[in-house]
């Protein structure tokens, strides 16, 4: 990871903490995206009642399952793309950023 990694053969505590934080951030972000997507697809914004009715509940379950499938699919496609580009730096169109 570190460009000047001389004499630091293993991750420092600060690096471990940063990695754990980053993983937690990704999970939280994904949960929020999932929630936003499936509330939009399955729950109309009229709010005539406060409960999730049966149809909405079933829709949410299927929506979540499909969201995970899309997540997996996108991850596979990006990995394939990265591999095709020789796994070098970038390749995401984020030229140099």
């Amino acid at each position: 990871m570190s460009m000047f990694g001389l004499g630091r053969p293993q991750p420092s505590s600060a690096e471990k903490i940063a990695a754990a934080e980053q993983e937690m951030d990704l999970i939280t972000d994904m949960f929020n995206k999932l929630q936003q997507a499936c509330m939009k697809k399955c729950v109309p914004r009229e709010y005539r009642e406060g409960e999730i009715n049966k149809g909405e509940g079933v829709c949410i379950d299927r929506c979540a399952a499909k969201f995970f499938d899309v997540q997996l699919k996108v991850s596979e496609l990006l990995q394939a793309e990265a591999a095709a580009k020789g796994a070098g730096g970038g390749g995401m169109g984020f030229g140099g950023m």
Binding site: L26, D29, M30, K33, Q36, A37, K40, K41, C42, V58, C59, D61, R62, C63, A65, K66, F67, D69, V70, Q71, K73, V74, S75, L78
Partner: peptide
């Protein structure tokens, strides 16, 4: 990555009669 997942999900998925794509 998470924006791409959201965007493509939102654009492509509209059928909730099945639980697999």
């Amino acid at each position: 990555f998470s924006n791409l997942v959201s965007h493509c999900f939102d654009s492509c998925i509209d059928d909730f009669t099945t639980k697999s794509l």
